[in-house]
Computed example of a mutant assay.
Amino acid sequence: MNEFVMTNEKVIRLSAFIGVLTLMAIWEIIAPRRALTVSKLVRWVNNLGLVFFNSFILYLVFPVAAVGLAAFAQENGWGLLNYYDVPFAIAAIIAVVALDFIIYLQHVLVHAVPALWRLHRVHHADLDYDVTTGSRFHTLEIILSMLIKFATIIVLGPPLIAVVIFEVILNVMAMFNHGNVGLPKTVDRVLRWFVVTPDMHRVHHSVEDDEANSNFGFNLSLWDRLFGTYREQPRAGHEGMTIGIHKFRTTKEASWLPGMLLLPFKGKISDYAINRRQWDDSDEK
């Protein structure tokens, strides 16, 4: 089984990415949650262009993917789940949940540390919010994320299949909860007790600091509720809220690929503390 997964891991992940991207794109066309403010063609070409660029750089920097490292750790007995005799099913569940938690902590970290926020604001600077926003991250942040994932795999020693499952969930849920779509209120209310819904995560992309510093989860909604970072709705409502960052409102810097890559290096160095959750409409951060 491990050999099959190793051989077909890229096909599995790419198929999931293309399939969900297509489904979400159709859903957004049929029933958009919000009216877009920037040309969809411009945003899609540049957001997906950044995805392909990042994939190329990752291939050069990390010849061994996360699943390969998991296999290596398993062969050498590295990690807690390899050290102890844990049944496969339980080990897989622990691994997926633990990796999910690490992503939550990483997300909080990139909002809390000023230097890391400069990288992460590329994701937040998107002037609209749709399925492609979920894959729009600066190259340096992607590399950082991969290093954190590698460290987690070495310490945890997750089953190889669990890592593939997590990677698929990561991509699928990022596209789902960044979708310009809405669920019926009753369905959304029930579903967000378990997983992050589009309406739940959209709050996180508000220009207002206290709203942007909430709802950090990407898959399980448990972490936001448990650690007090959950916010139910944006003040202005989902149709009335402004997406993005106050300081970056031009298409050139927020929607074109060169502008995205240069965004972390723009502006003076300033703090962006995670505990700045009060609302101040005069603040331009």
Rank of each mutant, 00 (worst) to 15 (best):
A162K: 12
V195H: 06
A174I: 03
V155S: 02
I165V: 15
K149T: 10
A162R: 07
F150Y: 14
H204P: 06
V163S: 08
V181T: 15
V195W: 10
F150E: 00
V187P: 04
P198M: 08
D199C: 14
D188V: 10
P159R: 06
H201S: 02
F176P: 06
A162P: 12
I161V: 15
F150N: 00
P159F: 05
V190I: 15
R202Y: 09
L170S: 14
M173P: 00
W193F: 10
E167S: 04
M175G: 12
F176Y: 14
P198F: 09
I161H: 12
P184D: 05
G157R: 00
A151N: 04
H204Y: 07
G182D: 05
H204E: 14
I165E: 09
N180C: 07
I169H: 04
M175A: 13
N171M: 12
I154C: 02
L191I: 07
V187K: 01
V196S: 09
R192Q: 13
I153Q: 01
A151C: 03
I154N: 00
H201Y: 09
L191W: 12
V163P: 06
V203E: 06
W193R: 09
F166A: 07
K185M: 05
N180W: 12
V181H: 06
V187H: 01
I148S: 08
L170K: 13
F194R: 07
W193E: 00
N177T: 02
G182R: 15
P159E: 04
V164D: 04
D199E: 15
R202Q: 07
V187G: 03
T152C: 15
G182N: 11
R192E: 12
H178C: 09
R202P: 03
R192S: 06
V172H: 14
V203M: 11
K185A: 12
N177Y: 13
V181C: 14
I169V: 13
P198R: 07
H201F: 03
T197V: 04
V195L: 13
F166S: 08
W193H: 07
S206Y: 13
G182C: 10
L156V: 01
P198W: 12
L191C: 09
H204D: 10
G182S: 14
H204S: 08
F150P: 00
T152S: 15
T186E: 12
M175Q: 14
F194S: 03
I169W: 10
T152H: 08
V195G: 03
V203S: 10
M175S: 13
T186D: 04
L156K: 00
V163K: 01
P158G: 01
G179D: 03
K149P: 00
I153Y: 02
M175I: 15
V203K: 10
T197S: 04
R202M: 09
R192C: 05
I148E: 06
L183M: 12
P184N: 01
T152I: 05
V203L: 08
I148Q: 07
P184R: 02
R202E: 05
V163A: 07
I169A: 10
A174Y: 09
W193K: 02
R192P: 08
I153P: 00
N177I: 04
V164Q: 04
D199I: 13
A174R: 06
I165H: 11
P159L: 07
